[in-house]
Lab assay of single mutants.
Amino acid sequence: HTVDVQGVTYHFDNPEEARKFAEEMAKRLGLQVHVKDGRYKVE
């Protein structure tokens, strides 16, 4: 499970961890979480 944050890619084994990380980063950076091709993108 992959999370892209402003061009940096993070990998997680656990989909729940990936989702939480994406939401946390989006909140911290004031950005949105998009799901695209099964990847989380924070932009």
Results as ranks from 00 to 15, higher is better:
Ala18Phe: 00
Gly7Cys: 14
Leu31Arg: 03
His11Thr: 13
Val5Phe: 05
Ala18Glu: 00
Val35Gln: 07
Lys41Gly: 06
His11Ile: 14
Gly7Pro: 00
Glu23Thr: 09
Tyr40Ile: 15
Val33Met: 06
Val42Lys: 02
Glu24Gln: 11
Val3Phe: 00
Glu16Leu: 10
Lys36Leu: 09
Glu16Asp: 12
Gly38Val: 02
Pro15Met: 12
Arg39Asp: 15
Arg28Trp: 07
Gln6Glu: 13
Gly7Leu: 04
Val5Cys: 14
Glu16Tyr: 10
Leu31Ala: 08
Arg39Gly: 15
Arg39Ala: 14
Glu17Phe: 07
Phe12Pro: 00
Asp4Asn: 06
His11Asp: 09
Val8Tyr: 10
Arg39Leu: 07
Ala18His: 00
Phe21Val: 03
Asp37Thr: 02
Thr2Ser: 13
Ala22Gln: 00
Val8Lys: 13
Lys27Arg: 13
Asn14Gln: 10
Val5Asn: 02
His34Ala: 08
Asp37Ile: 01
Arg19Glu: 08
Val33His: 02
Leu31Tyr: 07
Asp37Leu: 04
Glu16Pro: 05
Leu31Val: 06
Val8Asp: 09
Gln32Thr: 14
His34Lys: 11
Glu24Ser: 12
Lys20Met: 13
Glu17Ala: 12
Val33Asp: 01
Met25Phe: 06
Tyr40Leu: 15
Phe21Gln: 02
Arg39Cys: 15
Gly38Ser: 04
Met25Asp: 01
Phe12Asn: 00
His34Pro: 01
Glu43Trp: 06
Tyr10Val: 06
Ala22His: 00
Asp37Gly: 06
Met25Glu: 14
Glu24Phe: 11
Phe12Arg: 00
Glu16Gln: 11
Arg28Ile: 12
Gly30Leu: 03
Ala18Met: 03
Glu16Phe: 10
Ala26Ser: 05
Lys36Gly: 06
Ala18Gly: 04
Thr9Ser: 12
Gly7Tyr: 04
Ala26Gln: 02
Gln32Gly: 06
Thr2Val: 15
Arg39Gln: 15
Asp13Gln: 10
Val8Pro: 01
His1Cys: 15
Lys27Pro: 01
Thr9Met: 14
Gly7Met: 04
Ala26Gly: 07
Gly7Ala: 04
Tyr40Pro: 05
Gly38Lys: 05
Ala26Arg: 02
Gly7Phe: 04
Gly30Phe: 04
Tyr10Gln: 04
Asn14Ser: 14
Val33Asn: 02
Glu17Leu: 09
Gln32Ser: 13
Ala22Lys: 00
Lys20Tyr: 11
Phe21Pro: 00
Lys41Trp: 15
Ala26Asp: 01
Val42Trp: 01
Tyr40Cys: 11
His11Met: 13
Leu29Ala: 03
Gly30Tyr: 03
Lys20Leu: 13
Glu17His: 10
Val42Leu: 08
Asp4Arg: 05
Lys27Trp: 07
Val35Thr: 06
Lys41Met: 15
Tyr10His: 08
Val42Tyr: 02
Ala18Asp: 00
Asp13Arg: 07
Glu16Thr: 12
Ala18Tyr: 00
Thr2Ile: 15
Thr9Cys: 15
Lys20Gly: 10
Arg19Thr: 05
His11Glu: 12
Gln6Lys: 10
Met25Tyr: 06
Leu31Thr: 05
Glu23Asp: 09
Val3His: 00
Tyr10Glu: 03
Arg28Phe: 08
Val3Arg: 00
Thr2His: 15
Val42His: 03
Arg19Gln: 09
Val8Gln: 12
Ala26Tyr: 01
Asp13Ala: 10
Val35His: 08
Ala26Lys: 01
His34Asp: 05
Val42Cys: 04
Glu23Ser: 07
Lys41His: 15
Val8Arg: 12
Lys27Val: 09
Pro15Gln: 14
Ala22Arg: 00
Asp37Gln: 04
Tyr40Asp: 04
Ala22Cys: 05
Val42Pro: 04
Asp4Val: 07
Leu29Cys: 07
His11Lys: 10
Met25Trp: 12
Met25Pro: 00
Lys36His: 13
Phe12Leu: 03
Lys41Asp: 09
Asp13Pro: 11
Val33Tyr: 05
Glu24Gly: 09
Gly7Gln: 05
Arg28Pro: 02
Glu17Cys: 15
Asn14Thr: 14
His1Gln: 08
Pro15Thr: 12
Val5Ser: 04
Asp37Pro: 02
Lys41Phe: 15
Gln32Lys: 13
Val3Trp: 00
Phe21Cys: 06
Val3Ala: 03
Thr2Ala: 14
Thr9Ile: 15
Leu29Ile: 03
Lys36Val: 15
Val33Glu: 01
Tyr40Ala: 05
His34Met: 08
Val8Leu: 11
Asp4Lys: 05
His1Ser: 13
Leu29Tyr: 06
Gln32Met: 09
Phe21Met: 04
Gly38Glu: 05
Tyr40Met: 13
